[in-house]
Design a protein around this nucleic acid. Structure first.
Lengths: 251, 251
DNA sequence: CGGTTCGTTGATCTATCTCAATTAATGTGG
DNA sequence: CCACATTAATTGAGATAGATCAACGAACCG
């Protein structure tokens, strides 16, 4: 049970609710069928009708849609502890694809299993629901970011968000985090061209704010980066337990 | 009980699962505390910590965030039957605001009430969860729309989506739907300037595809509009019942 | 160590923005 | 129900952030 406390999912759900012993065991038991996926492989393709949800144990994936003319928009990144296709539990058909950006370890959890677990442990169901609501909050921020910020602020905002989310799952080492995304991928995530991503990142580097090298993002001046990005982490809903007050998890 | 089948929420949930008699009654019972909100009034403000969820019975609202420099991004529109702040059930603090675009009738449902209902009728909980997942799917499309489409396609896409969603709740009359949004609001939703919205709408009008007048949007050539927008309604997950097969609602 | 992918640079082009003014529509008090 | 006030839509002209194209250098990979 000391192990179960350390699984990526239980650590995250523990941020939402204080899991008791048997809930902890149950959550840990979800990571049984583990598969390994190579970098640059598509895990799920738009149109698929999955019978499992996928919990990312290790690695980084991105979610994207492809337009009919072949252009691509990345709509989000996911990190260890994320059930990156939780939606497939209730929505029949995938409306976007999922790509592994690094080598990934993924736990496949059958919808049937989830259903049984949620029935027996409703608080786990609520915690996963809560996670999917945070997912949605992040999409909203992306809309704002892409719709209203110029290239510099927009890029800075993505760096902030990614850094904050990675920090929450313990991926920070001395102000730096893994950064497997290429500039083309950043372009597809930010809605700008790859050339302009390059120039924008150079600008951030020259300003001494943040830099990307050898697959790592290093933050040199967090307050300044936040200011450029107009970043406010509230929407990530990190560290707010719903059972601190009269939350929905109380019975 | 013939009345309950006609409430905006039960009609929507019925699209997801076949509600039985007692579920129908329960859902209908949620619309007890009805409040009336004038057009242009803020229903919820960013930072609020609501104790209720709000079900839109009648009217149209938009959800938006405000940047520190005062600019605004509208992240979504909501129509009758939508619980436009379902997230507040599990997330403590609102990360965006809600504005009534027309006069609205809204049912306030206490989180406590929802919790009890979901406990007693888990299928209702799953149906509401499913609705919030569709919400998220719509946000993802907005990211793609704003990130990768030019002003014409982007505007066309918003018209398509809005028309399709309004159609699903019975707001269509002879190829036209209510359209309370001003061009400034469209600009804030699309991430372009109001002047350019104007020119883009004129273009769609001159092409004989769609036009907006006297607070109504009329579609003149749906196939063409869809083609311009590259619109595919899959992501709206309209009319896919989860209990048609071995879905999550079966016990 | 050669090939492929990724990052970088410069030059040109364009979709969209901004500013500023005008007209049309809508709402309101008398 | 009209006159005025306010808000929304429209138009034109000039400015610009970012796109596109094309080439080159650097890094990584088998």
């Amino acid at each position: 049970m000391s192990r179960s406390a350390d699984s990526p999912l239980s650590r995250k759900l523990n941020r939402f609710i204080a899991l008791n012993e048997s809930e902890m065991q149950t959550v840990h038991g979800l990571s049984t069928r583990v598969i390994s996926v190579a970098a640059d492989r598509e895990v799920i393709h738009e149109g698929d009708q999955p019978t499992d949800c996928n919990l990312l144990l290790d690695g980084i994936v991105c979610r994207f849609t492809t337009l009919t003319d072949g252009r691509r928009q990345i709509v989000g990144f996911n990190f260890p502890g994320d059930i990156f296709d939780a939606q497939s539990f209730l929505l029949n058909r995938m409306d976007h694809s999922i790509l592994a950006l690094t080598h990934c370890r993924i736990a496949a959890i059958a919808h049937d299993t989830l259903r049984r677990v949620f029935e027996e442990y409703p608080r786990i169901g609520l915690a996963v629901w809560k996670d999917s609501l945070i997912d949605a909050a992040i999409f909203r921020q992306w809309v704002t970011n892409i719709g209203r910020r110029d290239a510099l602020a927009r890029s800075a905002h993505l760096l902030c968000e990614t850094y904050a989310r990675m920090a929450a799952v313990g991926l920070v080492t001395e102000n730096s985090v893994p950064w497997p995304m290429t500039q083309v991928e950043l372009a597809d995530a930010l809605g700008i061209s790859a050339v302009h991503v390059n120039r924008t990142l150079q600008q951030l580097r020259k300003m001494g704010v943040a830099s990307i090298e050898r697959q790592r993002l290093t933050i040199h001046d967090w307050p300044r980066l936040k200011a450029i990005a107009d970043f406010d982490a509230t929407y990530l809903h990190l560290g707010e337990r719903s059972d601190d007050g009269a939350g929905a998890f109380d019975r």
